[in-house]
Design a protein around this nucleic acid. Structure first.
Length: 636
RNA sequence: GCCGACGUAGCUCAAUUGGCAGAGCAACGGAUUUGUAAUCCGUAGGUUCGGGGUUCGAUUCCCCGCGUCGGCUCCA
């Protein structure tokens, strides 16, 4: 007699050994049909897994995360089978489930073409219809290695050889296709019916650029056609908010082949947004007790030799240029400059904290293949700052920085945060005492602000612990912008000090921090977050006055100028076009407010506002509208 | 950097086996005076990414370079 306990606490009894599939069937026909796999005492297993003792059992269907993952993983096997059938000389390697889909890496003598992908997908459909049972088998290690070698699957054999000696080797067989896999898998290829192959790309064997490059085929898989279609629509939506497309459509910025990759040109409309961001940034920094600095874009390479950046980052620095027979470096970092300023004075313990911020443009050589719109560039402006303080001030400074960070990110429309706390790595500088104290201060700040955080043990930089803040955008993607890093290294290297209470020299603590990270990248994130619909305070054009006929041109210009006189960003469209045409055009430019003026509005000293969703608000006196727009603008 | 795909007017895209490089939108000129998402007519617009090669002839085929796009961490 076997007693099976179900998630709802109920218990089913079976006379003899039973599989999970049998348990599902005993619960109900519907569940038996939907069942993909199950868990036994928390362990994910196949549906044909036999139960020989009492256990806590759940049945996994496509409705759960685990079920979706199984579908995706099994679909990757389905793809591998289709590829092997079509191209017998292909060697299979690995094929896991990933977010929204799966991939499989293949070794093949020629690249896959888009036509190949279509053929593979068609073959996958066909194999799905064959309704092949997917069965788990066991082999001992030597046998498994020999088995895959005999089939010419040398990558598989290598994977097994690298598995721990005591680990059981399991294989999955579907028809003639056998793959090494831990599982579990769906019971039958007919469970896989909604998938699409998306792209093919190079990927290194075991992720190492020194190894052979394989071909990775990406696909997506879902429980049914409806979910698949919904996902494909979502991909289209994401494409519509792509900052590269919106950057062109809204005339915000451009990149130029003639100039070189990864170098950003801010157009007037984009520059307006940047101005608003910078003005706000400067305001909150001054309020938070920062001084604003300006430093050069180029300087003697020795500075980065002293800082140690050259040793670590030479590969991602632009080559120096010779000036008066000295090597000069376009700056990849701002910190040495702030230290030079620090060193122009002798400092007292009473001077601290010193909070110095700079919107510092830096240039880093990024490999050509990684450049991507505003997200990955070769020249960008960090919203950098360095805080110099005493050890006893660390905690208060960290808390202050964290508060400034959260307030700033909230102002730009982000409200969901996630924090990483990275602690001391094995290779590092600084005393145990200072690491402990600094790490505790970072943690304390996170806990005080009740932020969810993950501790990345040993993930800190060699020079100090750090916290990184991630934001979540409208469509759920996470972005790391902010970073707060303690540095026990640079003060040492540049030998900076202050005079302590007892008259002796002491080392100050240095904190590096950035809130937005890079203005370019942050702008890209904002564009995608808002899908181009900037809130009024950020919008490059906050309102456009539209005339019905030429008779209102004078009034339109008057309204525009009155709003402009209050600092609002307003245009007047007096072209002899039908108002519907003008509305369409400015709506496509995502202008928050359109102010229609006809004879009535002109007579009454009014405007008829229309927001970008198409909602209208009747006729409103111009002063009233202006107050409202000003209020919305000045919230930040 | 590596793998693959792509590069034609400002934008989105056409162009048969290698045979005069086109359309829509945008721009410009004119007409129109319009009430909440496209008024009509006309004009102009090109080193087909750059360089080389094959050919009577190259947007098309080949080579090199540049750029763009998708990838290159996530346990078989």
């Amino acid at each position: 007699m076997i007693q099976v306990t179900l998630p709802d606490g109920s218990v089913k009894s079976f006379a003899g050994p039973v599989t999970l599939g049998g348990v599902a069937a005993a619960i109900g026909q519907g569940l038996a049909r939907a069942a993909l796999a199950g868990t036994v005492d928390g362990q994910l297993v196949d549906l044909d897994h036999p139960l020989e003792a009492d256990a806590l059992v759940t049945i996994v269907t496509a409705n759960s995360e685990a079920g979706l993952k199984i579908i995706r993983h099994s679909t990757s096997h389905l793809m591998a089978q289709a590829v092997k059938e079509l191209f017998p000389t292909v060697q299979v390697t690995i094929g896991p489930a990933v977010d929204n889909g799966f991939y499989y890496d293949f070794a093949f003598e020629r690249p896959f073409t888009p036509d190949d992908l279509a053929a593979i997908e068609a073959r996958m459909q066909e194999i799905s219809l064959r309704a092949l049972p997917v069965q788990r088998e066991r082999m001992d290690r030597a046998e498994a290695i020999a088995f895959f070698q005999a089939q010419g699957e040398f990558f598989k054999a290598e994977i097994i050889a690298d598995l721990p000696a005591d680990q059981a080797i399991s294989l999955y067989r579907q028809g003639t296709f056998v793959d090494l896999c831990r599982g579990p898998h769906v019971p039958n290829t007919s469970c896989l019916k909604a998938f699409k192959l998306l792209s093919v790309a190079g990927a290194y064997w075991r992720g190492d650029a020194r190894n052979r490059q394989l071909q990775r085929v990406y696909g997506t898989a879902w429980p049914d056609k409806k979910a698949l279609d919904a996902y494909l629509r979502q991909l289209e939506e994401a494409e519509k908010r792509d900052h590269r497309r919106l950057g062109r459509e809204l005339d915000l910025f451009s990149l130029h082949e003639e100039a070189g990759g990864g170098l950003v040109f801010w157009h007037p409309m984009g520059a307006r947004v940047r101005q608003v961001i910078e003005t706000y940034w400067k305001k909150v920094h001054v309020e938070a007790g920062y001084e604003l600095l300006f430093t050069p874009h180029i300087a003697n390479l020795d500075l980065w030799r002293t800082s140690g950046h050259l040793d670590f980052y030479q590969d991602s620095m632009f080559s120096p240029m010779m000036v008066d027979e000295q090597p000069y470096q376009i700056r990849p970092m701002n910190c040495p400059f702030h230290i030079l300023i620090y060193n122009t004075h002798l400092h007292s313990h009473r001077d601290f904290p010193l909070r110095w911020a700079e919107l510092g443009t830096v240039y880093r050589y990024e490999m050509s293949g990684v450049l991507h719109g505003l997200f990955r560039v070769r020249g960008f402006t960090q919203d950098d700052a360095h805080v110099f303080c005493r050890e006893d001030q660390i905690e208060a400074e960290i808390l202050g920085i964290l508060d400034l960070t959260l307030a700033t990110l909230k102002a730009f429309g982000f409200s969901q945060f996630e924090v990483n706390l990275s602690t001391r790595p094995t290779k590092s500088v600084g005393s145990d005492a200072i690491w402990e104290k600094a790490t505790a201060a970072l943690k304390q700040a996170i806990v005080l602000r009740e932020l969810p955080f993950v501790e990345d043990v040993g993930g800190g930089a060699f020079y100090g612990p750090k916290i990184d803040v991630k934001i979540t955008d409208t469509i759920g993607r996470k972005w790391q912008c902010s970073t707060i890093q303690l540095d026990f290294n640079l003060p040492e290297r540049f030998d900076i000090y202050y005079i302590g209470e007892n008259g002796g020299r002491k080392r100050p603590i240095m904190i590096h921090r950035a809130l937005l990270g890079s203005l370019e990248r942050f702008f890209g994130i904002l564009i995608e977050h808002y899908a181009g619909y900037f809130p009024v305070w950020l919008a490059p054009v906050q309102a456009v006055v539209l005339t019905i006929t030429d008779d209102q041109n004078d009034w339109a210009v008057t309204v525009r100028d009155r709003l402009r006189a209050r600092g609002l960003r307003v245009e007047a469209d007096t072209r002899s076009q039908k108002v519907g045409y003008k509305i369409r055009e400015h709506t496509l430019k995502k202008v928050p407010w359109l102010l229609i003026v006809g004879d009535q509005e002109k007579r009454e000293g009014a405007v008829s506002p229309r927001d970008c969703s198409g909602k209208t608000y009747g006729t409103v006196p111009v002063e009233q509208f202006m107050d409202r727009l000003l209020e919305e603008t000045n919230q930040h």
